[in-house]
């Protein structure tokens, strides 16, 4: 019994960063913007949070910096993919490469000096679940959510109502970045309170895949994230019994599994209709 509780606890702990990042991606994709830069934004957020906390000793200031830097990284994607209408997939991939590279380079200084007093994880876990419910409420019960969902389905219909599609998409992408930054901060301030290069370990990619798997629905993302947290944790228990290369490969394998499952469940049908399409007035 205790064993089971411990496994479930680990699953939730591991699922929390996935959930936080996936919520951000749900919001961005509901506005029609795919951001494949989650992994990179998460890494940048993690480093910013850790570096701030380590140098100032203020954990909450670190958290804030993590969120801000995540949003700032997302602004690059918003500029390229929303304002300049470049290919969203290429821009996102570039952001991931950039984020992983920059965080690895700037983080060298912090390797090997863990935080002595990390943030407690329980608040993060509860907060992530509450955020998921909050995102659901905003999406489905408010005018803001209605506008956001409409932008992802048919931006032209929003444009004729005199609402700026570009502004809505910018805000959604920034929110996505802030959430990825928050997920990264959780990793570096609480879950694994030290800086190692590659601390995100493919979790950002799982968040992207999970967004599809849960059909772009924030509440279903809670269960999905914890389910993958569980898979992750169980695989880690095999450490020593399977080659470590397998464990390193795991996140990417999981992405393939997640997408295959999603395809089997025909979740793709739930994709926002204008997902991935830049909006230009007067084009159909």
């Amino acid at each position: 019994m205790n064993e089971l509780l411990s496994v479930l606890g680990q699953a939730v702990a591991f699922g929390t960063p996935i959930l936080l990042a996936a919520l951000g991606e749900v919001v961005a994709e509901r506005a029609g913007v795919v951001n494949l830069g989650v992994e990179g934004m998460m890494a940048l957020g993690a480093l910013a949070a850790f570096a701030t906390a380590q140098t100032t000793g203020n954990l909450l200031l670190g958290l804030l910096m993590g969120v801000l830097v995540g949003a700032l990284a997302a602004a690059i994607h918003a500029l390229v993919a929303v304002t300049l209408r470049a290919n969203q997939f290429v821009s996102g991939l570039a952001l991931t490469a950039l984020g992983l590279g920059v965080s690895g380079l700037l983080g060298q200084h912090f390797v090997g000096s863990p935080l002595l007093e990390p943030l407690p994880g329980a608040e993060f876990r509860i907060g992530a679940v509450l955020l998921a419910i909050g995102v659901w409420g905003v999406l489905y019960l408010t005018q803001t959510g209605l506008i956001l969902r409409s932008v992802g389905e048919n931006p032209g219909a929003v444009d004729v109502m005199g609402i700026s599609v570009v502004r809505v998409r910018w805000l959604a992408v920034l929110f996505g970045g802030a959430m990825a930054g928050l997920a990264g901060s959780y990793l570096s301030l609480s879950y694994r309170p030290a800086w190692v290069d590659g601390t995100t370990a493919g979790l950002g990619w799982i968040a992207v895949a999970l967004t599809i798997f849960v059909g772009w629905h924030p509440v279903r993302a809670i269960l999905g994230a914890f389910f993958f947290g569980l898979l992750y944790h169980l695989a880690f228990r095999l450490q020593g019994r399977v080659p470590s290369e397998f464990l390193l490969m795991l996140p990417y394998l999981l992405v393939v599994v997640v997408l295959s499952l999603a395809a089997l469940r025909r979740q793709q049908g739930a994709a926002p209709e204008a997902l991935g399409l830049p909006y230009k007035r007067g084009e159909r």
Binding site: L146, E153, N154, A157, G162, I163, E273
Partner: peptide, 18 residues
């Protein structure tokens, strides 16, 4: 110029509803 997946009410509330 309507959002196919949304209900009639959601479409009509867009931008002008409470």
């Amino acid at each position: 110029m309507l959002v196919g997946r949304h209900s009639v009410a959601e479409n009509l509330a867009l931008g002008i509803g409470s």
